[in-house]
Write a protein that binds this DNA or RNA. Structure first.
Lengths: 224, 224
DNA sequence: GACGGTACGCTTACAGCGTAAGATTGTCAA
DNA sequence: TTGACAATCTTACGCTGTAAGCGTACCGTC
């Protein structure tokens, strides 16, 4: 049954392409993490050898750049529907969610990757919505960096906790309980707050800081 | 002149230690970046072979954990001198400065490293200062995450720009000019703001967002 | 002084990495 | 049929972290 043609035909039917390589890379990174993404392992599910990938991707660096840009493409751009704070909140939460669904993306912010078109489009859309809300160019600049810093910084904090939580239902609690809180009373209290049963959604945590920034900006818009 | 004893004696005088390994690792990372930090290269300036390091460090993972904790140890903890906002601003700026002087540290936030004592101490001190300012346990928790998210997120944004700027006086401008701004008018404006001569200190950018958060928190403290 | 235990450093070896170089194959045009 | 060209595979190199084992130098105890 499993003759050679049978195996080769479907592979040959769908030729490699940058698109397909990037998409496979994202899937692999989503499932197994960035550290599992090697050229050899990426080639395997594509039915190809590692070096073949280099016809569609200049280097691993280029591959990662492309992956990050696909992440940016998933972010919901700000609408012009409601008041600017609601519009920006929606985009910020979308960015937050996208980063959580591609945890490896945060690791790529540090590397000096080349910036792709989707990221430029995202920046322009956010800056445009802030300008149309009435912010000056200078103020828009401030607001943009404050918002993006919060989003990326927050997810960066959240990810290690999520990694623990995924290990098992009580793994996170075990880790928290193992913290040496002797002589660190406020840390102990902080951990209690984290363990409080009512805090199901850490999204609320995120939206608290987000609201703080949005409200602060709104006040500065009123009195420029 | 260069007899064997001459060469061996000074090495034997200063035996390896976890402290010395960590310090050498930080120096290497500061100068050449995290990607240059391999066990073999780290061993070289210590006058030792790579495997010898494993007597003082459980693994490379453990080495990185230790390095990150030394970074936390450099942060100026919040005093109880003035009003809480001034105290916290000083600590936040110190954190910011420390991250800029050890750029590799940001890359380590993502990895699920074990948390060391200096980081616990930092957390407790910050949480304590917020509590003594009159914030509730829940509110302190919010404030802590909002502040740290901003610090880490902001530095994460700044680092790629700094990397360009270091390549040469005009390298950053060249990169900015090469951005395809056709159809992205707000991005073009954003780049203009970045290139404006009067913006010498990007620290101001950082302190803008910091002030936004501190002021927002202060308002919530007044009306709980 | 002799002896065993422990700590520390070295050597060797292995599997895996990114990718340069070159051989091989499949496909279409002339 | 032939040539051209692109896509793919093969091989190889220098690098990585680190497991396993060996040698040695110092230690407290007899």
């Amino acid at each position: 049954m499993a003759t050679q043609p049978d195996e080769l035909t479907p592979e040959a039917r769908i030729p490699l392409s940058r698109e397909r390589v990037l998409r496979a890379a994202m899937e692999l990174a989503d499932e197994a993490g960035l550290e599992s993404l090697s050229m050899r392992r990426l080639a395997q599910p594509l039915g190809v050898e590692a070096m073949s990938l280099y016809h569609h991707v200049r280097s691993k660096h280029d591959l990662l750049s492309g992956m990050l840009d696909m992440v940016y493409a998933e972010i919901e751009l700000p609408a012009n529907d409601e008041d600017w704070r609601s519009d920006m909140r929606r985009t910020a939460i979308s960015f937050h969610d996208v980063l959580l669904s591609h945890e490896w993306a945060c690791s790529l912010f540090m590397a000096p990757l080349s910036v792709g078109p989707a990221r430029f489009r995202y920046m322009d859309a956010v800056l445009g919505r802030l300008r149309s809300a009435g912010f000056s160019a200078e103020m828009t600049h401030h607001a943009y960096h404050a918002l993006d810093s919060h989003i990326v910084g927050f997810v960066l904090w959240l990810l290690p906790y999520l990694a623990f939580a995924r290990q098992g239902p009580d793994a996170a609690d075990d880790v928290l309980r193992s913290v040496p809180v002797d002589g660190l009373p406020h840390l102990a209290e902080h951990i209690d707050v984290h363990q409080a049963p009512e805090r199901a959604g850490d999204v609320n945590e995120f939206e608290f800081g987000l609201g703080l920034i949005l409200d602060g900006l709104e006040r500065m818009r009123d009195t420029p």
